[in-house]
Amino acid sequence: MNIFRLAGDLFHLISIFILIHKMTTSKSCSGISFKSQALYLLVYVTRYLDLFWTFALYNSTMKIIFIGSSAYVLHLMTGPFKPTHDPNIDTFKVRYLIGGAAILALLFPYKWTPAEVLWTFSIWLESVAILPQLFMVQRTGAAETITTHYIFALGAYRALYIPNWIYRYLTSTFWDPLSIIAGVIQTVLYSDFFYIYYTKVLQGRKFELP
């Protein structure tokens, strides 16, 4: 563990908290992409299969929180707040994301075992899982401030993993090329969003695309 990874994980927790807080206080999931949320649940379920055979207090607790909160968000979106979700603006074709991640996972896993292939699938899928959400924001041309805070916190999580990987490489010469490539792609996808977030939202203006 190092400070970058801890900070990244905390941002991840904060993002989940912001999302659930937004939905429960406004009793609405407007502006949130159901498709992105469903992809995240798929990411966590396929990556954290090792919950069944390894235990580490910090990691296992976080994994359970991520799976549980993700399932809870989907429950809110399909149950109580379903009327506030507009599928007509959530139209990103996720089959290409799932298909692409599946192909990469089958071609280049570290080992050809079900758990390792699914782990690799989850890494690639996570790197692009935000796209339906960003696409939705782009389509509507604006987003509620709370939604932008959510997307920012989620992006900051993977961005902070980059210094974590540099630190791990320097201190224990450990590196995992797959995670790093996918993590950098993921961060790059957020970069436009980060830029607009910094220049608009943090200066107290509404998030609107130029």
Binding site: M1, R5, D50, N59, F66, W119, D176, L178, S179
Partner: peptide, 10 residues
């Protein structure tokens, strides 16, 4: 911390 592994990250 045990042997570094990619599975020790979230």
């Amino acid at each position: 911390e045990a042997k570094p592994s990619r599975h020790d990250e979230l």
